[in-house]
Design a protein around this nucleic acid. Structure first.
Lengths: 144, 144
DNA sequence: AGAAGATGGTAAGAGAATCTGACATGTTTG
DNA sequence: CAAACATGTCAGATTCTCTTACCATCTTCT
């Protein structure tokens, strides 16, 4: 079949492959209580912690849904909430101990998958891919 | 912030942007009864029709979930089900009239968004992006 | 041909994820 | 200060997805 897939779908396939691999290998490493939705929120927490609204915007879901998922992550020990020193209304969602270990484990999986992709594409094209995507981000990331 | 996003997230951002744009502009054009989940299944129907199981595999969800969404698409007039002449067990999900018009409308939106991307990236890098993604598909598409 | 297994699809019920609307509280701005 | 805005929560409904179980048909093997 002559390939004429739209670029959106073409982007989706490797994205989904990466997500699946990370979740699978994380589960095998003992982090088997994470759901895809929880992970999608979790992965966006900034080093010093993030506000709920920011996480919601980045994940593209409502604050309510985000709160629902953060509650679960908190109960599972992946994150904690602390008051935001700069804003009395806000709280910061920070990565807790179990979360920290999860981040390390997932970083390893991501590196492995990226290495596989690079082995298939070649170093040069893998770099091109990342460059182009980073550039595209400027007009497709509603967040930053 | 130094940009070190993992490639999965970098892929996700433009994918999501494309999906959002298509759904928004489709809604504005009168196709306001489509949900994202329905659209994700619908967009994978092959020209001559597809089997439910194939759609399920491609979308990465169960046959039951797919059936649930196809039921809705059928009720909304986007698809119809006909017996598969080659297999008495199977039925083909085919695009119906309203679906056909939706396909045309969405094709136009996709073309517009791709043009915007190309204007930002330049023709050369847009082509490179598509080439690389098509290549990456060989090891990340569980379907074909 | 007949049995065993694989494949296509549906049914029922439960759980997860998401949304809308309303609200309390704190912050920023005119 | 008052008005507008932002942060987060609560309550309730809806949508989406999964698991388990099942039936019908097709394919393969003996």
């Amino acid at each position: 079949m002559p390939e004429d897939l739209n670029t959106g779908l073409l982007l989706f396939l490797p994205y989904r492959a990466m997500e699946t691999r990370v979740l699978e290998e994380l589960a095998a490493a003992g982090f088997d209580d994470l759901t895809p939705s929880q992970a999608r929120v979790f992965q966006r927490i900034a080093p010093g912690g993030s506000r709920l609204s920011d996480l919601a915007r980045q994940a593209g879901i409502t604050k309510q849904s985000t709160g629902f998922l953060v509650d679960q992550l908190e109960r599972l020990g992946y994150v904690r909430r602390v008051p935001d020193p700069d804003d009395g209304r806000a709280r910061l969602v920070q990565i807790a101990d179990r979360g920290r270990r999860g981040v390390e484990a997932s970083r390893a999986v991501v590196a492995r998958v990226e290495a596989e992709w690079e082995a298939h594409l070649g170093k040069r094209r893998m770099t091109q891919l990342r460059d182009i995507l980073a550039d595209l981000r400027e007009i497709t990331d509603p967040w930053r």
